[in-house]
Each structure stands twice: as C-alpha cells, then as structure tokens.
Simulated scan of single mutants.
Amino acid sequence: MSDRTMRLTAWLGAQLGAPPLAMTAVAGDASARRYWRIELGHRTLIAMDAPPEREDGRRFARIAAAWRAVGLNLPQVLAADFEQGFLLISDLGTKTFLEVLDAERAERLYRDALGALILIQDRAPTTGLPAYDEALLRRELAIFDDWLLAGLLGLSLRDGELRALATIRDLLVDNALQQPQVAVHRDYHSRNLMVSTPSPGILDFQDAVLGPLTYDLVSLLRDCYIAWPAERVQAWLHDYLDLAQERRILDPGLIDRVPRWMDLMGVQRHLKAAGIFARLKLRDGRPGYLADIPRTLDYVLAVARAYPELAPLADLIDGRVVPAFRAARAGGEERTT
C-alpha cells in the first residue's frame, strides 16, 4: 500500500468513524484520479483520490452540487479534504452504459442520455464555467499533431499538408464558435454514464465549459468507445432536435444547420481524442487506449469524405496515418518517447 493510499485510508476512517470494511479499486478514467468502492455493510460509497497538483477537487465538488440542484444525477460529495485531494462521494452504481449496451437496451439508455443532455443544456448553470474559446480549441487540435502524428507515428507533414490542415483547423474552430453556447460536459459518452436511478448517473464532469451546442451530442452519438449504424445515429439526432425545440434550446431557424455543426464538431473532437489516446500510451504508459484510435479515425474519415473542404484531411488520414498506425501496431513499434 502506497503512502498516499495509507493517508487516504486514515482519512476515511476519521470521516466514517471506523476503517472501511473493504476498499476495492474501481476502474477510473483517463485522468490522474483514482477511485475505491468502500463497503459499509448496508451501502457502498466511493473514495476519490484527486492529487491536488494535478486535479481540482473544488471544481469537481462545485459542479456536482450545481448540476445536482437542477435534477441531474451526479455524485454527492459527502466529505472532502481539498488540500490532500481526498473526496468521499456517493456511489452511482457498478455498470457503465458501455458495459451493458446492446441493440435492445440502446433505445432506452440513449433516450435517458439525451434527456439528461437536454437538461444540462437547458438548466445547468454556466456562471463560472470557462469558455470553450478559440485558444482552447486550437490547443486541443494540436494534440493530434503532437502526440499521434509526431509522437506515436513519427510522421512529418509536407508543406502542402501543413497549409491544408491550417485551413481546416480554421474551419473547425469557426464551426464551434458560431454555434449556440451552452453548458458542455465535455466527455459525455458511454463510459461516463452509469446505469443508475435516475438514469443516467453522470461521471467525469469536472472539466465542463461553456461551449458549442453539438459537442456533447456528437460525443454521445459518435462515441469513441462504441459505434452505431448511421441510420440509428440519425434517428437519435432527430429525437434530440425534437427535445431541443420543445425546451427552446435551439431556434427552429437553426435546425438545418445542426447536422453540419455536429459533423465538423465531431472531426475536432475525434482528432483530439486520437491524440489523447496516443498521449496516454506515450506519456502515461497506458497502451490500452490505442485500440480505440481506429474508431476515432473512421469517424473523421467518414465526415471528411463527405465534405470537399475536408478532402486534404481524408487524404492524409487514409493515405499516411492509417497505414503508419497499422504498421506500428503490427510490428509493436509505436514510439515510446
């Protein structure tokens, strides 16, 4: 047991009045946070270790309280020591959507997820949320270049590719900024939605921002961890648009713009995600996420092939990135520094 885990255990004992009956490590997210399920006999709680030099526990607690107040099912913070980075929170369940999703359950679970998304966009307070502004969008796009192209694959872009991608980045940034701005969870997908009552339980919300209407929508419908047929995604998009109009989140005059907004927003998100998955391997020693890179690149390719202005991106990914990635995986030769 590490020194930090020993300190967490001692802190939990002080909060609970006795040491936990059992502490079981819980699979976490891609952050520096770690989680344990605490057994108390008649119920379970979650202990969260969020090192304060890398994670903002106060922000987690603040957003959790604000979003719970409008009816969303987020963890309740029961005790916290922000200086040490320890939090004791309620347990939203043991199964993520990803673990139970199949063709039969998908309709009910996605209906729940879309309903909660509408509530986030309609009622979650935005005061104090940082803006998903141009600077942040461009920093995120650079993750693809730095960590996947250069870092993992060792690819150098040619002058023409660099110019074309600069133009495409401008297009993606403009697309995000021209959309209605709402509260954005920023990682709203099947691994962060829990099978819970009420449904869904929502995790990993602490990086919420004020940003584009379609960001969470495309995160959910074109999930980095599970893909659905285009016809089903289109049906869910129509369900969302009906709800958004009912709640007056979206002006009816903008409805026709949403599919393009979502497509281009998805390109930005999936380029970033592919870069993050490479970074998790190279920087954090977590190679399991490499298996999700092909799915994110497939999403980008599907959109890029449908929009002439994105053709250079499709050519780059199809002609250079995908072959280099396949060769690296086949040979086990991904760069490690």
Rank of each mutant, 00 (worst) to 15 (best):
Thr337Glu: 15
Ala273Asn: 10
Tyr307Gly: 09
Ala135Val: 11
Gln15Trp: 00
Trp236Val: 08
Asp146Thr: 13
Arg54Trp: 07
Glu140Gln: 12
Pro229Val: 03
Ala113Asn: 05
Glu140Tyr: 07
Leu213Asp: 03
Ala69Thr: 06
Val218Ala: 08
Lys272Phe: 01
Pro198Ala: 05
Arg257Trp: 07
Arg326Met: 06
Ile226Gln: 12
Ser199Arg: 15
Phe97Lys: 08
Leu250Trp: 00
Val77Cys: 04
Leu153Gly: 10
Glu161Ala: 08
Tyr225Lys: 04
Ile46Thr: 07
Arg158Asn: 10
Ile89Lys: 03
Ala150His: 08
His185Met: 09
Gln15Leu: 04
Pro212Lys: 13
Pro308Ser: 12
Arg105Ser: 15
Leu8Met: 12
Gly331Asp: 14
Thr214Lys: 02
Tyr35His: 03
Leu241Glu: 10
Leu290Tyr: 04
Met6Trp: 07
Gly13Asp: 07
Arg58Ala: 14
Val209Gly: 09
Asp146Ile: 03
Ala166Asn: 11
Gly253Asp: 11
Gln178Arg: 13
Gln245Ile: 12
Ala66Cys: 10
Gln84Trp: 02
Asp187Val: 02
Asp251Glu: 06
Leu119Ile: 09
Ala27Met: 03
Leu149Asp: 01
Ala176His: 00
Ala124His: 10
Pro323Val: 08
Leu165Ser: 07
Ala113Val: 08
Ile317Asp: 02
Glu55Leu: 01
Leu316Ala: 04
Leu40Gly: 01
Thr197Cys: 05
Arg326Thr: 14
Met1Gln: 08
Pro198Val: 05
Asp292Tyr: 06
Leu74Cys: 07
Arg222His: 10
Val233Ser: 12
Ala327Asn: 09
Ile276Gly: 13
Met265Lys: 03
Ala291Lys: 12
Arg257Cys: 11
Ile276Met: 09
Gln268Ala: 04
Asp3Ile: 13
Val195Gly: 05
Arg257Leu: 13
Thr24Glu: 14
His238Gly: 08
Arg111Asn: 14
Arg283Gly: 07
Leu237His: 01
Thr9Asn: 14
Val209Leu: 15
Arg139Pro: 10
Phe97Trp: 03
Met6Ser: 15
Ile249Cys: 03
Asp3Ser: 15
Val321Lys: 05
Arg335Pro: 09
His189Lys: 04
Asp318Cys: 09
Leu45Trp: 00
His185Thr: 03
Asp256Met: 06
Ala18His: 13
Ser31Glu: 13
Asp29Tyr: 00
Glu83Val: 15
Ala47Gly: 10
Asp145Cys: 00
Thr337Leu: 14
Glu333His: 13
Asp102Trp: 00
Ala64Thr: 02
Trp36Lys: 11
Pro75Met: 01
Asp174Asn: 12
Glu309Leu: 09
Leu152Trp: 02
Gln121Gly: 09
Phe205Asn: 04
Ile46Tyr: 00
Leu264Gly: 01
